[in-house]
Amino acid sequence: MPQSPKNIALRVIAMEAAAIRDLGGLINDHFDEAIELLQNCKGRVVLSGIGKSSLIAQKIVATFNSTGTPSIFMHAADALHGDLGIVQENDVVIMVSKSGNSPEIKALIPLIKNFGNRLIAISGNNQSLLALQADVFLDTTVQQEACPNNLAPTTSTTAQLVMGDALAVCLMELKGFRDGDFAKFHPGGTLGKKLYLRVADVCAHNEKPSVFADQTLKEVIVEITKRRLGVTAVVDEQHNLTGIITDGDLRRMLEKNTDIDHIAAKDIMTRAPKSIVAEELAVTALDMMRKHSITQLAVTNGTKYSGIIHIHDLLKEGLI
Rank of each mutant, 00 (worst) to 15 (best):
residue 147 C to Q: 05
residue 85 G to W: 07
residue 254 L to C: 05
residue 18 A to R: 14
residue 205 H to V: 13
residue 296 Q to D: 12
residue 15 M to H: 00
residue 66 S to K: 12
residue 243 G to Q: 02
residue 145 E to P: 04
residue 158 T to P: 03
residue 285 A to N: 04
residue 135 D to N: 15
residue 13 I to V: 15
residue 94 I to F: 11
residue 211 V to T: 03
residue 307 G to D: 06
residue 135 D to Q: 07
residue 227 R to D: 14
residue 128 S to N: 06
residue 98 K to C: 02
residue 132 L to V: 02
residue 250 L to E: 01
residue 236 D to G: 09
residue 81 H to T: 03
residue 121 A to L: 05
residue 29 D to T: 12
residue 195 L to G: 11
residue 129 L to N: 08
residue 293 S to D: 14
residue 31 F to I: 02
residue 312 H to N: 13
residue 184 K to N: 13
residue 238 Q to P: 00
residue 73 F to S: 04
residue 184 K to C: 11
residue 258 T to M: 12
residue 202 V to I: 15
residue 211 V to S: 03
residue 297 L to R: 06
residue 162 V to F: 07
residue 122 I to A: 00
residue 70 P to T: 07
residue 61 V to S: 00
residue 58 Q to F: 02
residue 219 E to G: 05
residue 266 K to C: 07
residue 12 V to L: 01
residue 198 R to D: 06
residue 20 I to P: 01
residue 13 I to H: 10
residue 260 I to D: 00
residue 36 E to R: 14
residue 126 N to G: 03
residue 311 I to M: 13
residue 1 M to P: 06
residue 178 R to W: 00
residue 53 S to K: 10
residue 13 I to Y: 11
residue 63 T to D: 11
residue 46 V to S: 03
residue 96 V to D: 02
residue 235 V to Q: 08
residue 128 S to H: 08
residue 156 S to N: 08
residue 287 D to C: 01
residue 187 P to I: 07
residue 267 D to R: 03
residue 182 F to C: 07
residue 54 S to E: 12
residue 31 F to G: 01
residue 101 N to S: 13
residue 256 K to H: 08
residue 265 A to H: 07
residue 94 I to Q: 10
residue 253 M to A: 15
residue 317 E to M: 14
residue 102 S to D: 13
residue 84 L to K: 01
residue 115 F to A: 13
residue 77 A to I: 15
residue 268 I to D: 09
residue 208 K to R: 15
residue 268 I to M: 12
residue 125 N to E: 10
residue 92 V to C: 14
residue 189 G to F: 05
residue 201 D to R: 01
residue 62 A to T: 14
residue 28 N to V: 01
residue 272 A to T: 13
residue 186 H to A: 05
residue 74 M to A: 10
residue 289 M to H: 06
residue 135 D to V: 02
residue 250 L to K: 08
residue 263 I to F: 04
